[in-house]
């Protein structure tokens, strides 16, 4: 990288930069939809290659500080994690850590506990998506209507999105309290039996999903309304003129056009859903039993409750491997989003 980072001395020749710069204008700032991140100079003639080279060289320099952060604080720990996963380091054990090969993977990854945690994580994720997307789509369509007070409703629905998960989690915990909480009291008013929200396995799973989805719904509505706003109206109008019903227009015109935005939103939710930690930590700590113990919660427990650093590292390495394919998903989705 040092060779590439050699200084590009001297002022760039203005005239040629000018012509290269006017090749295309990048995605406009005001557009709410996905924005292309490259392709600017793709069609530049060979004679102009040296401009691209100079840009490339300064780009290497400009991204250097980012690497200064990533190498010691991201890659080094990941490497240490891989290393530790082959040892038996446990805090508080008197003996020196020794090499144990794949033992940690055998005992902690190929265990029903890890499998259960994976299922719980995916279950919360799937339940959440099933809640957030139909509801989010419906709300986005409603908010897309021309009406008085639209901004007020939109604001109200967006507010939960960025609230501190720890703080709202704690208040939900209070509201879920079976004896003193307001949710069971309301159920009582409606003549329904109270639910032991955080004490029974399925209710606890729903309770966690609901709090997470409460915040996520805001993001989904935000993304979909922005997506709807960016769609051209002419195809919809044309379909309507042709006599299509509201549902047909949505199903065959709006939905396909919105697909890139939906996919991007879906991907964000899948990533964040897989990472879920704060809300679980505050609401249930993974309980009752292991009913809401997600992979992050399990890894945390092994590391910081059992003090078993090496075993937690093995789980971490597997979670890392599970995350890797997301990169390819990401590329596919962003290519799709850019094409639209």
């Amino acid at each position: 990288m040092t060779a590439e980072g050699a200084p590009a001395s001297g002022a760039p020749s203005a005239g040629s930069v000018s012509s290269a710069g006017s090749v295309s204008s990048a995605g406009s700032v005001s557009s709410a939809g996905p924005v292309a991140s490259n392709g600017r100079l793709a069609g530049a003639p060979p004679a102009r290659n040296w401009i691209a080279e100079r840009r490339a060289r300064s780009a290497v320099l400009l991204t250097l500080p980012t690497w200064v952060f990533l190498v010691p604080m991201f890659f080094l720990p990941l490497g240490v994690g891989i290393y530790l996963s082959f040892y038996d380091k446990t805090l508080g054990f008197p003996m020196e850590p020794s090499f144990v090969g794949l033992d940690n993977y055998r005992t902690d990854v190929l265990s029903p506990v890890f499998g259960e945690a994976l299922v719980v994580t995916l279950l919360i994720l799937a339940l959440g998506l099933a809640l957030q997307f139909p509801l989010g789509m419906a709300l986005a369509l409603l908010l897309h209507q021309q009406m008085r007070g639209r901004g007020v409703f939109r604001t109200a629905i967006l507010v939960p999105m960025l609230l501190t998960p720890v703080a709202v989690g704690l208040m939900w915990r209070f509201m879920y309290n079976p004896e003193l909480g307001i949710i069971n009291w309301w159920l009582g008013v409606l003549g329904l039996p109270g639910v032991d929200w955080l004490g029974a396995p399925w209710p606890a799973l729903f309770a966690v999903t609901f709090v997470d989805s409460w915040q996520a719904l805001s993001l989904v509505v935000l993304m979909l309304t922005a997506g709807l706003a960016s769609l051209p109206t002419s195809p919809e109008e044309a379909a309507r003129v042709d006599g299509a019903s509201g549902w047909q227009v949505f199903r065959h015109v709006t939905l396909p056009a919105l697909m890139p935005v939906i996919l991007v939103t879906l991907m964000i939710r899948v990533i964040d859903g897989f990472k879920i930690f704060d809300v679980v930590f505050i609401l249930t700590r993974g309980g009752p039993g292991t009913a809401t113990q997600t992979v992050s919660m399990l890894d945390y427990n092994v590391a910081f409750t059992f003090l078993a650093t090496s075993r937690a590292s093995a789980i971490g390495v597997v979670l890392m491997l599970i995350t890797l394919p997301i990169y390819f998903l990401w590329r596919r989705v962003s290519t799709l989003a850019e094409r639209s």
Partner: peptide
């Protein structure tokens, strides 16, 4: 997931 990084 954050824990993957935080443990090591």
């Amino acid at each position: 997931p954050g824990v993957v990084l935080v443990v090591p």
